[in-house]
Design a protein around this nucleic acid. Sequence first.
DNA 1: TATTGTTATACTCTATAACTATA
DNA 2: TATAGTTATAGAGTATAACAATA
Lengths: 147, 147
Amino acid sequence: MSGDRTIINYSVLDEAIGYHLRRAQLAVFQDFTETFSELGLRPADFSVLLIIAHNPGLKQSEVAEALGIQRANFVAIIDGLQARGLAERRKSEEDRRVQALHLTAQGEAFAKTMMTRWAEHEKRFVDKLGGEDARDQLVQLLARLMG
Amino acid sequence: MSGDRTIINYSVLDEAIGYHLRRAQLAVFQDFTETFSELGLRPADFSVLLIIAHNPGLKQSEVAEALGIQRANFVAIIDGLQARGLAERRKSEEDRRVQALHLTAQGEAFAKTMMTRWAEHEKRFVDKLGGEDARDQLVQLLARLMG
DNA sequence: TATTGTTATACTCTATAACTATA
DNA sequence: TATAGTTATAGAGTATAACAATA
């Protein structure tokens, strides 16, 4: 009976914000994972590289907090980026406890490649939404949920 | 220097769909978890109870697929709901392999309580969005991302 | 005493393979 | 052979406590 398709009543799930958020996020992150599997980047790696690229010299705890990552879990992320030669820790002269984060020259080049791939990924979803205006509208609505 | 606040350049993260989706979903799920901690319900439990309540007699694999849950992982969810006396498996007479899912009388009562708590949770975010229209708009945009 | 980075650890969620009983 | 449910297991992601070095 492979032609049958059970019709399911989703009840209030159809209008539940959290449910749609979860399903949409799953779809977008799955595309992200496929797009960046070649470069070996997870969403967290991407966002960390991006923040360091545009804010060189921040301490680990600042980058972690900006992204909502626990500083304990942040260590392994930086370990990975450093092992790949993309980012580096520099011990601060003023405060010997802090590690300031920077991209390496290789990391800068990598970030450029990464951004072109990201633009492709992002465009796919902007198109699905119906254009830049719809995207801006969505982002604005999502921002309200966090207030 | 606790008065200092580092200004961070989020670059394209500010307009990245996936990033905002993740942060918003985190905020909504956190509120969900707090709202339902008393009832001992995780998001998956909630959605499963809701689907069974409105579609009694579905097989496990149908409910699992409708919610995007692997049937292997679905077993423990039903085990939990059954152990709490909220749902039950009924072996089908036509096909002895399938387990048809139903709520118990206690499960029906529980679902009512659950829905009033859910309405409170949902309302908090509808208010943040600016009303029902904004919510509908958001849900519609999110649905496009999954197409 | 407090903070930064770190280690160790545990818990949840998710994914896969293999088994059983039925068809 | 194929399907429904199950078990076992492994991998992410995330959360907490405790420690060393430094302030």
